[in-house]
Design a protein around this nucleic acid. Structure first.
Lengths: 115, 115
DNA sequence: TGTAATATGTGGCTATGCGACATATCAGGC
DNA sequence: GCCTGATATGTCGCATAGCCACATATTACA
């Protein structure tokens, strides 16, 4: 991944959950922070629109995989911090295995070595 | 990828093009054969429904990435064989790089090592 | 005769990412 | 005081693509 190329929209579908769950595993984070982390860690290759990210967080909370709470501090806008629930942790494990299986399946079919 | 688990539907989106283009690269193949190859090479982990595969082949042909022709032989049902066009070959190269970049981006964000 | 595999095709449903737009706070420059 | 940009969250409607269910036809085999 040398040049910053915007990645295919369809390819991203279904990967967002794994990314979000992974990022809130070590510590609670708020939505904007998650979005920026995805962008920075991928060196700009991967970016999720706010119109994707916030509804996703809402879905993950509704499913009981994340727990969110509002935090208001003086000198800061309101933020909603999300932490991983026990069930979210189990789902993350399943998604990690699922992702590895998927990458391996594509490798087997295409004969591609991964970067 | 030990046990044959059906992979997440959303995860598959966007990967089908790369798989099909890869499979018809060395030789022309027909739709049913492509479907079976995906299933066998991935050891059953990845499977595309006919309702995904045939419309996809139609789209790839319409875009000029594949060229299809009907082949009828005695003792066989009619088959539509697809071969890669020169443009399809260029697209395949782009998609391979895009896939590698995507996998690498997910790895950077999640810290996951791929299987 | 019946079942399974081969081979292709379609209508409607669903899930999800995105463009465009909206709102509000805060920092910094002019 | 005003403007711009970053921070922070949110929604409406659109487009894409995989799937369920169903349909059709031929061949192979018990």
């Amino acid at each position: 991944m040398r040049h910053i190329r915007r990645l295919d929209r369809e390819l991203k579908k279904g990967s967002a959950e794994l990314l979000v769950l992974s990022l809130v595993e070590p510590q609670p984070r708020h939505g904007y922070e998650i979005g920026k982390l995805i962008e920075r860690r991928s060196q700009g290759a991967l970016r999720f629109n706010a119109a994707s990210l916030y509804p996703l967080l809402y879905r993950l909370e509704k499913r009981g995989w994340l727990h969110g709470r509002w935090v208001e501090k003086a000198g800061q806008r309101r933020r909603r911090y999300y932490r991983l629930t026990p069930e979210g942790r189990r789902v993350l494990g399943r998604q990690r295995r699922g992702w590895a299986a998927f990458v391996e399946a594509v490798r087997l079919i295409t004969g591609l070595e991964h970067a």
